[in-house]
Amino acid sequence: MRIAGLGVLALVLTACGGQSEQVAGVAQSVPNVVPAAKVSVVSQGSDQLSPRSPIVVKASDGTLQAVTVTNPQTGNTVKGDFSPDKLTWTSDDQLRYGATYQVVATAVNKEGKPVEQRSEVHTLTPKGVVTPTLLQPASNGTFGVGLIIGVKFDRDVPDKAAVEKSFKVTSSPEQGGGWYWVNKREAHFRPQSYWKAGSTVKLETTTFGQEISGGVYGGADVSATYKVHDSWIAKADGNTHQIQAFHNGELVKTAPTSMGKTDNTPPRGPTPTFNGTHTVLGKQAHMIMDSCTYGVCEGQPGYYKAPENWDVQISGDGEYLHENLATVSVQGSQNVSNGCLNMNTENAKWFFDNFNVGDVVEITNSGGPQLNINNGHGDWAIDWSAWQAGSALHG
């Protein structure tokens, strides 16, 4: 009786332990089964993945060991990073439109047994692409306080508000500002007043992969960082026939000048300089000025083709600060030029040496019309309230 009792006790203990089961009166061991690792790819087989969205690979019942994503059309490998727990891999490269990416992922379970998953990810193919370029290209140099930045597109933008939301401008120190759509393809940005000397300004677009309208998507993004140098502002008055230069607010130069003529003197009649705020667009030490570049060609009244020195361009249609020895006798007393601001050699060379892209030339009392925003960078001539109304978001 004592032996039989011990046998019953042993069977009860074994059953309570849960580590074996009785088969034909004999306890048998059952091994634990470790599940195989599983791999899943976000948007696998989808034709709708936006190229601005990452490819994401996930593991369950194990961890990722290796992930390779390749564009077979280009042979390029897509870069990406694992999460700290190795459960997720996320791409951090920019994808392409209309591409097929081959994904090869290996995961291991808790026993270290590997499993490989092969799949494809397809990015969407847009009906059209609107691609931006920079109005003011990036440069290793610096710019004046009148710097105008902006974005130009290679086709009309159907939804300007949606695109404007994707623009980002930051400045240090912070100065705010606003966008103004010049037309259906071009938008400019400026603060209410000139940039502060010494500022750093960064422009970025984030339209890539964004649907603009009806299946049309944004093209490759652009960005640039601009450094603003000291404040250089010239003030030219058509009544006094003088041009003054201010460096960081201090008057450092006054010179006589001759602006564009406003009377009907033959052979061309009035050629007044534009009123308003101009900015320097570029400069050349020596150039041939040819009136045919704006429609007055050889054989027509008023045609000229002459070498000019120390040329600082301030408008798109050919206004310059430059040397003109033929008008020295009336510089400071009469406006007789074809629209440029004429000076003698010494003064023209001084402005050439000190004024650079983005520096400001404010012209008053010239007798001419207001400088247009499309004529170079006439943006500063627009009243701030009107500028704000030119935004697709706030107009």
Rank of each mutant, 00 (worst) to 15 (best):
G378E: 01
V328R: 09
Y226E: 11
S231D: 14
Q48Y: 14
T200F: 12
S333A: 12
E319A: 09
T70A: 07
M259T: 10
H188C: 08
L321Q: 04
G45H: 05
E362A: 06
N344Y: 01
T170F: 09
T279I: 11
G302M: 04
G276A: 06
G238Q: 12
F352W: 06
T254Q: 07
R2A: 14
A107R: 04
T206A: 14
R185H: 04
V108R: 07
A187H: 00
N275S: 06
D47G: 13
K202V: 14
I363L: 15
E250R: 07
I3F: 08
P31A: 15
W384E: 10
K184P: 02
S20D: 05
G395W: 08
V42P: 02
Q28T: 14
N342W: 09
N347S: 10
S391M: 03
H377L: 09
V108W: 05
K165A: 06
T133V: 15
M287T: 11
V182A: 02
V78I: 09
K113R: 14
G378I: 08
P266L: 06
I288K: 12
Q210S: 15
Q242D: 06
S291M: 04
I212C: 07
V151W: 04
H122M: 08
N239S: 15
T125N: 09
Q388I: 13
W89R: 02
T254L: 03
V57P: 05
P84N: 06
G18R: 13
N309W: 10
S40Q: 09
N264F: 06
R118C: 03
N140F: 03
A285R: 15
M343S: 02
G146I: 03
V228M: 06
H229T: 14
